[in-house]
Amino acid sequence: MAVYKKTYRPYEGRLTASWSRFLVIRRYAFEDLRRSRFLTVFYLASFLYPLIAALIIWVQHNASALQLLNLNGASRLVPINAGFFMTVLGWQSMLALFLSAFVGPGQVSPDLTNNALSLYLARPFSRAEYVLGKLSVLLILLSLMTWVPGLLLFGLQGYLEGWSWMTDHARIAAGLFFGAWIWILVLALLALSLSAWVKWRPAAGALLFGVFFVGSGFGAAINTVQETQWGSLLNISNLMGTVWVQLFEGNDPTSNGALFFRVSAGGHLPVWCCWAALLILCGICLSMLSRKIRGAEVVR
């Protein structure tokens, strides 16, 4: 064909529905992640604790197994209550932090470093869809680690204990679901915003740890030095612990949170303050993303 006949021809193939375009990013991101052997092993290993918890629930409802193991008093040893499920969620959420530190920074920074963002945004694809697509990678991975096994464990306990147990303890299921989603949202937004602002992936990962650990250390230092409890606003694990306790146990809590997510001694804050602090943190992350995710960047 002569060159002059090569004129513009629009794409004539099947278009992806506009509502599901953000899922394209997720598809390619998962392909990338699957290549990392370390991440695959880590992700599979993260299901070990829910498996052990399932075993504990099963053993407690199996009289012959209890007799065989000579553990007739085991039901008193490990009570299956809000604390049990909060511990599962706490452990899984800590693993989710580690996973986000490895997966999150690699989501946005390569696109910004290589000036590839304009290639995305030149297509019928908005900034919000881009962020949603990148978020969905973390949301799906972290959901499968946290509330999905949590609710499966709740279902197993309900199945073995009976329908009445499930209805009596419906608050635990709601706590598992909403508590995990708050943590996932905070973590995913924090990981993406740091990834957008810190272009070196390991540094972004280290900053994620830094925000979590240094924030809690500095918050504790503020509490001690100033004899106040408001330093705990910088302690994300304290904020999550307070919110989880309210979600799992209501307004009359009997515990101080879960593994890694405890309300520290002297760190008691009003629940609405903790919710507000988490929302403000999410808002800051969104505004950081909004400033960086642009089709064109002015370089001075």
Binding site: A206, F213, G217, F218, A221
Partner: peptide, 24 residues
């Protein structure tokens, strides 16, 4: 209070993460 802050903040977090940022 300073002893607590030095061990828990400076040694375990501040200097640790600071050196990570500077030297790596």
């Amino acid at each position: 209070i300073f002893a607590g802050m030095f061990e828990l903040y400076f040694l375990r977090l501040g200097i640790f993460f600071g050196c990570l940022g500077i030297f790596s």
